[in-house]
């Protein structure tokens, strides 16, 4: 059942003109204005009820990522179908297999550490667009599957610990993490991990408390609660990002056809390109 695609050796996209350093269009706000999100240098936690529209937002970020130049995707999806369309474009696609997930997270942490050493050697503290290093976006759909359901208790704890390391390390070295789950309470995700996510998107919740868990304590009391989103209005969410106050947004919707069209196009522009000389495997090059 676990579908794994080996990391494509020719995984350097040259066709698409987008960049992960560009703001990503994710939808409109309540005044009809477009909402953009700077995913690079930020970690995003997306949460809300099943059927709230989380995967729409995740797929927007994914779709942008695959069309970006010099961008690698690492996808975790225990449900397979949400991120499955992008599996051929990702450097790693992890299904319901926590061992593989732990391996990939370990590799990512090594890359992150190496990048910081590189940054230190270059007397810098942060990756810039001109560095030529690839952006490695880690996208996790249903984080709870890896932290509570799959594997044994020690494995789950190791997964959470490694992810915490990646979330805290990856920000400045071009390795952002986008995680989606249904209810990020402490029994699903350690609070220490949850609080590392700077940006939050709260899709519909059933209670004020659930909304507070996603956005942070106290927002519901100020009137920002995802429980007032209509259940029929899929894709509506509260986004806590720039500005410091949750904004009501509606995430852009990509139909299945759109997703597969984008995936096909991205595969078309990525795959036939020749491998740059000297680049043998993607991961070592990224490091």
């Amino acid at each position: 059942m676990s579908t794994t695609v080996p990391a494509p050796v020719a995984g350097v996209p040259v066709g698409p003109g987008l960049s992960m350093f560009d703001p990503i269009f994710i939808g409109i706000d309540e005044f009809g204005q477009p909402v953009y999100l700077d995913v690079i240098y930020r970690n995003i936690l997306i949460a809300g009820e099943p059927g709230g529209g989380k995967s729409g937002l995740v797929n927007n970020i994914c779709g942008h990522g695959v069309l970006c130049d010099n961008t690698r995707l690492v996808l975790f999806d225990a449900k397979l179908v949400e991120l499955g369309p992008w599996r051929d474009l990702a450097d790693a696609f992890i299904g319901p297999d926590i061992d593989q997930g732990i391996d990939v997270l370990r590799r990512l942490l090594v890359v992150a550490t190496n990048r910081y050493t590189w940054l230190l050697a270059n007397r810098r503290r942060k990756l810039a667009p001109g560095d030529g290093m690839s952006v490695i976006v880690t996208i996790i759909d249903e984080l709870a599957m890896y932290s509570t359901v799959l594997g044994t208790k020690p494995q789950q704890e190791e997964f959470s610990a490694l992810l915490r390391g990646l979330v805290s390390l990856g920000r400045a070295c071009g390795m952002p993490v986008v995680a989606a789950t249904q209810r990020p309470s402490w029994d699903i995700i350690p609070a220490s991990l949850r609080d590392l996510f700077g940006y939050r998107a709260a899709f519909r919740c059933t209670s004020l408390n659930s909304s507070n868990i996603i956005l942070g304590q106290g927002w519901a009391e100020q009137g920002y609660t995802a429980s007032d989103i209509s259940p029929t209005n899929q894709g509506a969410a509260y986004l806590l990002a720039e500005g410091g106050v949750p904004r009501r947004i509606k995430a852009a919707y990509l139909s299945d056809t759109d997703i597969y069209n984008i995936a096909d196009y991205a595969a078309w522009t990525r795959r036939p390109t020749s491998t740059p000389a000297g680049d043998t495997t993607g991961w070592e090059m990224a490091a």
């Binding site: 779709g63 209005n233 947004i249 509606k250 852009a252 919707y253 759109d258």
Partner: peptide, 12 residues
Amino acid sequence: EVLTAHVGSPLV
């Protein structure tokens, strides 16, 4: 209310 509208993605 504009949030009930269908929002397309420019990626398409």
